[in-house]
Design a protein around this nucleic acid. Structure first.
Lengths: 157, 157
DNA sequence: TAATAGTTGACTATTTTGCTAGGTTAAGTA
DNA sequence: TACTTAACCTAGCAAAATAGTCAACTATTA
């Protein structure tokens, strides 16, 4: 899992869509204006989101985009995965010649971290974000949980 | 906090260094050969790591690089921070005109996530990684902890 | 002094990112 | 039917990031 501005753009746009599309479809032009993202770039992002089955386009006047599923059933992880290229799996793609090398330790760390981030983002839906504005507070609580996890990591049992 | 291949290269190299520099300094040529990273790219990365006070170069025959601190006192977070550019702080850099806009929710999410990842990586030192090879097992345990954090997030109290 | 190895800077190639410009197609509306 | 709207599609482009090369220079050690 990579974390770049591209994914952030996608999440921003999806949040805007989830917030505004409750009555009727939302045009990309509107999202572009509200979020200051270029229209054509949004089109590219939404082409991927559509192919991933997360949004549906409605053509013609009064058309636009709407969510395929409920906002509570779309998590941040899949939004990012939809727009990001599936990045090459770190040279040693499970090759046998890798285990002997110390380099693979790093590989494992990264896999573990990726997994951790993915899980974290999978647990947060678009609806979660729209419902509660006190993200700071939540981050604080999760910070605390993370510290506990680290304790367990360092001193098992 | 961004997650790119650049950071992964840096961590890989630092791990290699921590592992091999216990007796004498390690040349970048050696690291380049072992980790299949180009020498000059490593030079660029180590220039930053040196400026960040994490490694020290020893010139002349028998020279190379060594760690400034113990491997247990160098965490993954600072390695990545040293080589990554400090990324522009998301348009609304704490501006007042931002709070009104729904876009800032996304911003907050990202800040929270960055914080989470940073904390996670701060809790892992180079020594931690070298000591235990069972990263999978650890990832498993942390996965479990992450799930608990998500539960708390969704159902506070 | 000669060899080693860090240090520095300039330069190149590739990929990703973000965006522009131009179309085509489907669905409403006059 | 003609017109408008907006999705959908394609090609291309400039800036940045990524990854790497080459060459000169400096400090250290043998």
């Amino acid at each position: 899992m990579r974390l770049t501005t591209k994914g952030r753009y996608a999440v921003t746009a999806m949040l805007d869509l989830a917030f505004h599309s409750q009555i009727k479809p939302v045009t990309l032009t509107d999202i572009a204006a509200r979020q200051t993202i270029s229209l054509s770039y949004l089109e590219q992002l939404f082409a991927r989101l559509r192919r991933a089955g997360m949004v549906k386009g409605v053509r013609g006047p009064g058309g636009g985009y709407k969510l395929c599923r409920k906002a509570s059933d779309i998590n941040i992880s899949e939004v990012i995965a939809a727009v990001d290229e599936p990045l090459d799996s770190t040279k040693c793609g499970g090759e046998a010649n890798c285990q002997k090398d110390k380099a693979c330790l790093t590989h494992n760390l990264w896999m573990g971290l990726s997994e951790q981030i993915r899980n974290y983002l999978e647990g947060i839906s678009l609806a979660d974000l729209l419902e509660k504005n006190q993200v700071q507070e939540i981050a604080q609580r999760q910070h605390h949980d993370a510290q506990q996890a680290i304790e367990i990591y360092r001193h098992p049992e």
